[in-house]
């Protein structure tokens, strides 16, 4: 199996979110960046498991500037064989998907993995866009996958339950919690990752279809109103009369 994993860099979960230039730019000062959690914990690890089961190779692809190299090296340390970084600073999900499609469509990948969403722009979009641009069947938010020959049986999350579906390679899958268990890179993996190929390719001429014009922080919640634990009826009164939610 020839497998591709799309990885993205996101601010750490605990990063302070602030903006500059009249609320038009994300303030990167002091922000630690990580590999997007669903990409790393579930998509990448499940891809490596496919190789362990069926042989083949795992390539990671990232659309970004050289700032992204540390997370790409981490993916190599966890177990990917090689990496491609498409050198640009994308403005929207379409630009990311279209850049990956340009690179990947002639490569003959059997399975393409993405995480279900990134924790910065929360779009759930790159997987579906990429599937369409590569003309692949797409199963989103997968929580389990088993592979027999060229046929995968995949569980995916739907509202209040799950759906089980079957698909033949080649296909694209977006990874949800449950698909695999997080792996921590070991020292040998970290040493090897330095010698694994990371190819930087020039970006294709693709324009974003949307851009962010401004950001806004949500209004601060006023401090909590505490209610006497012996008198929950007071809570119900407040929810009805003050908050008007029941």
């Amino acid at each position: 199996m020839k497998v591709l994993v799309c990885i993205s860099q996101t601010p750490d979960t605990t990063a302070k979110i602030a903006f500059t230039d009249g609320n038009t730019q994300f303030n990167k000062d002091g922000v630690t960046y990580i590999m997007n959690p669903t990409d790393e914990w579930y998509a990448l690890v499940r891809a490596i498991e496919v190789k362990e089961q069926a042989g083949g190779s795992v390539t990671v692809v990232n659309v970004g500037t050289a700032d992204n190299d540390p997370i790409i090296r981490k993916a190599l340390a966890i177990g990917a064989d090689d990496a491609v970084r498409i050198d640009c600073d994308p403005k929207d999900a379409y630009e990311v998907a279209a850049q990956i499609a340009e690179y990947a469509k002639a490569e003959g990948f059997d399975i393409v993995f993405t995480g279900k969403e990134t924790i910065d722009y929360n779009g759930f979009t790159v997987g579906g866009m990429l599937a369409e641009l590569m003309d692949l069947p797409y199963i989103s938010m997968a929580t389990h996958m088993s592979l027999e020959g060229n046929t995968a049986t995949i569980d995916r999350e739907i509202e209040g339950g799950q759906e089980k579906a079957q698909v033949d390679t080649p296909f694209l899958i977006s990874a949800n919690k449950g698909l695999a268990e997080q792996r921590i890179p070991n020292m040998r993996g970290i040493m090897m990752s330095k010698r694994k190929p990371l190819k930087v390719v020039a970006a294709a001429d693709i324009a974003a279809l949307s851009t962010i014009s401004s950001y806004e922080l949500p209004p601060q919640r006023s401090s909590v109103t505490l209610v006497d634990p012996e008198n929950p009826a007071e809570l119900i009164r407040l929810l009805h009369e003050e908050a008007k939610v029941i």
Partner: peptide, 11 residues
């Protein structure tokens, strides 16, 4: 965006 920590206006 940012897991509920901000809003963004997309053009």
């Amino acid at each position: 965006v940012f897991s509920g920590k901000a809003f963004a206006d997309y053009q």
